[in-house]
Amino acid sequence: MNTTTLTVYRRSRPLPSVVAICVAMIVGAALLVKGFLSGGNLVNIGLQASILMMLAMPMTLVIMSEGLDLSAGALLSLCSVILAQALLSGLSIPLALCLSLLTGLIFGLANGVLVANLGLPPFVVTLGTFGVAQGAALVLTDGNAVAGFGPELARLYGASLLGIPVPVVLALLVWLATHVLLYHTRFGTYVFAIGGNRDALTLAGIRSRFYHVGIYVFAGLVVGFAALLLTGRMNSAHPTGAIGMEFDAIAAVVLGGTSFEKGDGWLLGTVMGVLTISILRNALNLLGVESSLQMVSIGLLVLAVILIDSWNKARKESST
């Protein structure tokens, strides 16, 4: 086998596994779960998947850069709380969204500077900002939910555009934006390089740290945007409401075949990972499996995929 076919084979390796898992999940759920294929349920899956999609898109970039963002869930809660409090104090939705985006920007910048400029391990940094974000949300609300800011946001969440629910449209827009950013801009090329060979990037005279910070800033901004959907869905904001969502997002990225090393990422795979997890949760819900066991099953699924990932890597290493 010559080198070119080998490279093509490696590039396309994640494709079969996640596609197979995703298709198996859809077919299995359609056959085994009553009411899965009803229109209302499919819309429900789309709505459920939309927030997860928003977290998983930037998480793909973060993981490709050999990083991890554990603060995403807590930050989403904080942004949601800030958004809700801004609305409560009489600000319009766009202004409140700006505040939420600003919060996301600040946390993304902090994560990025600590990880990229100071070279600290991403998981401990984001664990620290997780604590800060969770703490800030608790302090702002005294631990209570924020509600009673009028129905405008919920109305926006419930609206639809050409028959497609607005949250799904927004999630698709985030996908599109991430796709363009990753595959059609210089930034995207550098993202691949930051994960693959950071030193080469630096030696080529590119400010790799700047772009590395950019990844985390992008992540923070998208989380700030996703707060709009979360707050709209609940029509309230809870200071610890979204904690744990980062796990689903990381799970979706890992399922999608993005590797934690070597800048090996695939955005479409993440989308399928998001679908897989949303369908899995939805099917288990319909089957009456409690959410705690859903958590266990997703955890096992993720460990299995990480296992396959690290085995593949070991095999590749031993063969070269």
């Binding site: 991890l68 934690f260 409690e290 958590m295």
Partner: peptide, 20 residues
């Protein structure tokens, strides 16, 4: 498995078991 990821996975599995 990378230690951090493996224990992050078990974190959620154990949490789920405890909830259950």
């Amino acid at each position: 498995m990378p230690p951090f990821l493996a224990t992050y996975g078990t974190l959620w599995i154990l949490q789920g078991l405890a909830f259950h």
